[in-house]
Amino acid sequence: MAGGGVAERWVRRRTRLWLWKVAAPVAIPVMAAVTLLIVPLAVIAGAEADTAAGPGLRCSAGGTGATVAGIDLDAVQMGQAQTIADVAATLGLGPYAATVALATAYQESRIRMLANDGSSPELTREQAAVTATSLQYPHDGLGSDHDSVNAFQQRWIAGWGTVAQLMDPVYAAEAFYARLIAVPNWQTIPLTQAAQAVQVSAYGDAYARWAPFATELTAMLWPAAEATAADLGGPSGGVCPGLVVPAGSWTRPTGGLLTSGFGPRWGALHAGVDIAGPRDAPVYAAAEGTVTTAACTSAFCDRDGGLDVSGYGNLVEIDHGAGVATRYGHLSRYTVTAGQPVAAGALIGYQGSTGNSTGVHLHYETRLDGVPVDPVPFMADRGVDLAADPGGRRR
């Protein structure tokens, strides 16, 4: 199944971090010495090779924000923060590692996955072109500091990885933790000292400012992170935990751009809207209800479909009562069963391209007494703007 193997990827990554614990004190200086010799060719080849794999699951796809130590965080920031905490817990590093990482990410990017347009005058033309490939990957905003990308502002020229790797939030967190655990006594030294040893920033004292904030944020995220670490058996566990949505509220079902609206299309009614995000981006119940359908509705759902395949592919339908229902189509897989009650924001599946589909997206429908209605005004009446994704972009 396309996009599968979540548990296997986490196991491989955990093994890789264990090797880092042993090898990092020697490997990092050696890597730094050879980086300037090999990176121009390696990064170009690596960017092509890694594009197929794509970024990992992005838990910033939807949901609500929170206020932490007096700082307001939106859904994107909270999602990225949860991923950072999840990686720490899954690698067995403990909450202090997450606290150091979250303080660092807030200082560097305000906990957003930043792409880079390559406009820094410090870059050569070739370096600028490679840096600008970060724009091809899902991101939460733009930066232009040298060749820095992602929430930690890691630099491919400095040997952190290829641009494609660094635009994967899970890889970025792993890379940070790999260098953190190589710092002597990292568990006991002050946060700002640990962060600076990893980042080598021109503003090394800046991380201390965010220590109380990062401590409180870690405490908020750690229970879900521990649940993720305890459940590596499949996608219904913890890679993307459910969202916290106030009772009676509705939430955006997934992240990405609205790419196709409700109405006539190719001589038939397009009964919903299409929201396109990265493959295996989490899909959530838009509101509280009961699952009425969780099934493959096409000839096959173990791989991508196409225009010659009929049906929704993997489909979840939820009855919200009072004649209101929602449908979630073309999922790569679903994590619920028919008859199961779900809360608003519950994880129900992942974006895919099964059934009558030509690309990865969520087909989202809203129905009143069985009749499809346009989801955009329907959701707007319930406080959810489908036309703007959590990254701030608008179609």
Rank of each mutant, 00 (worst) to 15 (best):
83 T>W: 04
224 A>R: 15
116 N>F: 11
250 W>R: 02
223 P>K: 14
156 W>E: 02
96 Y>H: 14
285 A>L: 00
167 M>G: 08
353 S>F: 03
172 A>G: 10
197 A>L: 00
311 G>Y: 12
71 I>V: 14
114 L>G: 08
383 G>S: 07
163 V>C: 09
295 A>N: 12
347 L>R: 13
225 A>N: 13
78 M>H: 03
287 A>V: 02
277 G>V: 03
349 G>V: 00
271 A>S: 14
365 E>R: 12
179 R>F: 05
117 D>I: 00
71 I>C: 02
244 V>R: 15
281 A>T: 06
9 R>S: 11
64 T>Y: 11
316 V>Y: 10
307 L>D: 11
73 L>C: 04
133 T>M: 12
67 T>G: 02
223 P>C: 10
208 A>L: 08
139 H>Y: 07
340 Q>S: 09
265 R>C: 04
39 V>H: 14
113 M>Y: 12
268 A>T: 14
390 P>W: 04
202 A>Q: 14
24 A>S: 15
360 V>T: 15
347 L>D: 05
25 P>D: 01
184 P>W: 09
264 P>D: 10
163 V>Q: 05
356 N>Q: 12
229 A>F: 12
283 V>N: 01
291 V>R: 00
278 P>R: 11
55 P>F: 03
331 L>C: 08
143 G>L: 02
166 L>N: 10
118 G>I: 07
96 Y>C: 09
104 T>V: 05
228 T>P: 00
376 V>N: 13
200 V>K: 14
253 P>M: 04
191 L>G: 07
235 P>T: 11
269 L>A: 05
310 S>P: 09
130 V>Y: 07
128 A>T: 06
390 P>D: 07
321 G>L: 09
284 Y>A: 01
116 N>E: 10
162 T>I: 02
114 L>Y: 04
74 D>S: 04
234 G>Y: 12
394 R>C: 08
330 H>S: 01
370 G>L: 11
113 M>A: 11
288 E>K: 11
94 G>V: 09
158 A>F: 09
230 A>N: 15
238 G>E: 04
39 V>I: 05
149 V>R: 03
223 P>A: 12
232 L>Q: 15
187 Q>F: 00
182 A>V: 00
192 T>C: 10
133 T>N: 08
331 L>D: 03
253 P>W: 01
257 L>P: 03
359 G>F: 14
22 V>A: 15
303 R>A: 12
324 V>P: 06
272 G>M: 01
102 L>G: 07
96 Y>P: 05
36 L>N: 13
132 A>T: 01
379 M>Y: 01
23 A>V: 13
50 D>G: 13
87 V>H: 06
49 A>I: 13
23 A>F: 15
197 A>I: 01
56 G>K: 06
148 S>K: 11
2 A>G: 11
27 A>N: 03
352 G>D: 06
126 E>W: 10
69 A>W: 05
288 E>G: 12
279 R>Q: 14
97 A>S: 11
76 V>R: 14
156 W>F: 15
5 G>V: 01
53 A>I: 07
43 V>T: 13
179 R>H: 07
237 G>S: 13
58 R>I: 07
266 W>M: 01
195 A>F: 02
96 Y>V: 14
278 P>L: 07
168 D>P: 08
205 D>H: 13
64 T>N: 13
209 R>C: 00
273 V>D: 08
180 L>N: 06
197 A>N: 04
238 G>C: 09
304 D>V: 03
210 W>G: 09
192 T>L: 02
260 S>T: 10
52 A>K: 06
108 E>K: 09
141 G>C: 06
